[in-house]
Structures are given as structure tokens and as C-alpha cells.
Design a protein around this nucleic acid. Structure first.
Lengths: 119, 119
DNA sequence: CCAGAGTATGGCTATATTGCCATAAAGCCA
DNA sequence: TGGCTTTATGGCAATATAGCCATACTCTGG
């Protein structure tokens, strides 16, 4: 990679890898659905399995990915394992992205980011 | 999936797929690096190839992924193809995530999201 | 038109991800 | 302890992704 970048950029490769890991955890429809559900209230694996409609082991592995990325935390309650989200940024972030991305695939392009985005 | 969700959630599978596509585009260190660079100023493929240090075809394919996700746009200038980012949300988003995620892998956990996050 | 710079795409292999089944691990209760 | 519920993990096959080389495509200048 390049050295002496002028301003905000030029992060370390480790930082990019860490961010990529988080993004990778978000890069699956089922996991996004689970995050949305967990954003409403804590749920255990069984409940999530029911709502997602996949195998229990699949859901458990998805949850492991999200937890490894630091996006959710777990809390035991008897034999159940309840999960909760650790950050509420996700929704705002995707809303912003959709405001910038949707117009491109529908009507025109450019602008539009100003509507739902701070920058 | 489940019906009648109370509040914000319960999006359509298409919406989750679209979000996953964007997240997948972000799920690679080189692409994050390229987005950071493009956030500073527009760059052509040749310049990006130089800075990233990978094969030109690899960089071109990364750019195609980012463009398909709607994260960047291109503009021809002679034989060169200059790219620019379409949304500045990314930096804020990752900063927020890191504020919520880092503490978990370093010292304690929980809280911390309030520091850099609106929610 | 021709040559060359700049970019995109096809083809290929190596690696990673996904999702299921089977099964192990952990905790509760009789 | 034994049986039950709930989760997590190992293993496997199908699919997707990453990166390179080679090459086709596009535009400019002579």
C-alpha cells in the first residue's frame, strides 16, 4: 500500500482487515434479518431458528459469525442462549446507503445521498 | 420469515439481499482501502492499481464489485476511467462500529457505542 | 489505419463460505 | 443419574470469491 496519505485515509492493513471482517459478517441476508430481529428484542437461538426458517445449526453458526465480529453478545438463561445487538448504527447506516444506492438502480443517479446522509 | 413485526424491522427478503450485496462489496480490505483513497480524490484504475499493489485486472474487478453495489461511479477521461465514491456514510459508519466493537476485543465490553454513535 | 496506453473480461486454480446432517456439550428436572 | 431441551461443533458437498495470466476492448495521437 501507499505511504504518506494526506488526510483521513491511509489506515493500517490491520484496520482494513478488521473492518472487512465486520462487513463480511453483515454480508448475508439471514444475518441482516437476525440483526433486525435482535434490534427489537433479545431472542434465543430457538426463536431465531423459527423465524429465519433454516436449520438450527445454521442459525447457530450465523450467530457465531456475528458474535466474532462483535456485533452481538450472548447471555445464558437456563439452557437458552439469548442474543442482543451491541450497536444500533446498522439501521441508520443502511438507510443512508440505500438513499445513495437505490436511485442508481431505479431512475437517475448522483445526489440523493444528502437526503438520508450526514455527509 | 415472520410476519407482523411490531416496529422498524421485517423488511422484505429483497431488501436484505440488497443490503447484503452492499455489505459484501465492503467485505474486503483492498476494497475498503480503495474506498478510502477515492474518498480523498477521484482516481483512475492505473493509480489505484499502483497504490493497492495488486494486478490491474484484480483492481478492475474490485472496482466492478463496488460499482455494482452502487458505492462508486466512473467517469471517462480519455482512455482513463476515473472513479469516485457516491456516499460518504462509510467512514462514520465504521468509526461507530469500531467504537462498539473494539472494546470487546481489548478490555471490557458493552456500552461504548454511545461515544461515537447516534443511537 | 496503426500503434500504444488504459481498462475490462474470460479462464483457471486456490481458498472461503454456506447449509445441511449427525453429534457432542451444557443445563434443567424428576 | 437418566432423560429432556437447548446450543454448539465436526464433517461434508455445493457454491462463491480472490487473484493471477492472457487477451479483448476503447480511446487517442500520428
Amino acid at each position: 500500500m501507499d505511504q504518506n496519505a494526506p488526510q483521513t485515509s491511509a489506515r493500517s492493513p490491520q484496520q482494513y482487515a478488521a473492518r472487512a471482517k465486520v462487513a463480511k459478517a453483515l454480508a448475508h441476508p439471514s444475518r441482516l434479518f437476525m440483526l433486525d430481529l435482535l434490534g427489537q428484542r433479545d431472542l434465543c437461538v430457538q426463536e431465531l431458528t423459527q423465524k429465519v426458517g433454516a436449520d438450527q445449526s445454521t442459525v447457530s453458526k450465523h450467530l457465531a459469525v456475528l458474535r466474532d465480529a462483535g456485533l452481538i453478545e450472548s447471555r445464558r438463561e437456563g439452557t437458552s442462549n439469548y442474543y442482543r445487538v451491541t450497536c444500533g448504527c446498522l439501521d441508520d447506516f443502511f438507510r443512508c446507503l440505500e438513499a445513495a444506492v437505490k436511485p442508481e438502480t431505479e431512475t437517475d443517479s448522483s445526489v440523493a445521498c444528502d437526503e438520508g446522509c450526514s455527509t
